[in-house]
Amino acid sequence: MTDPQFDELIHPSTRLSLVATLAAADWAEFAFLKDRLGMSDSALSKQLATLEGAGYIVTERRLDGRRWRVRARLTPAGRDAFNGHVAALRQIVASAAEPVDGPAANP
């Protein structure tokens, strides 16, 4: 069971989709992420750099034939942060769904 921990760095929608994608994979290539998330090269590079700076992902360049390919993978710290953030989101949703006790509830 992961402790709920809201993470401001992960929460913006683009970054959340990026981290959620990487959380379901061992690694993903830059081109795959760009295609699936509908981002430009520069926007994706910027998001990856931010996450890498926080220690949430690592990127590596691999030579495939004549082309260099960039792969990204989530670090254990990134996975913990993602799991904690999802748990926090679920907690927020669950607490809003709970019935409120009070005078109006018990006439």
Binding site: H11, S13, L16, S17, L18, A20, T21, A24, R36, L37, V86, A88, L89, R90, I92, V93, A96
Partner: peptide, 11 residues
């Protein structure tokens, strides 16, 4: 939070 969970689920 629900919208964010929807994004996670979609990804």
């Amino acid at each position: 939070a629900g919208d964010a969970l929807g994004l996670v689920d979609h990804a």
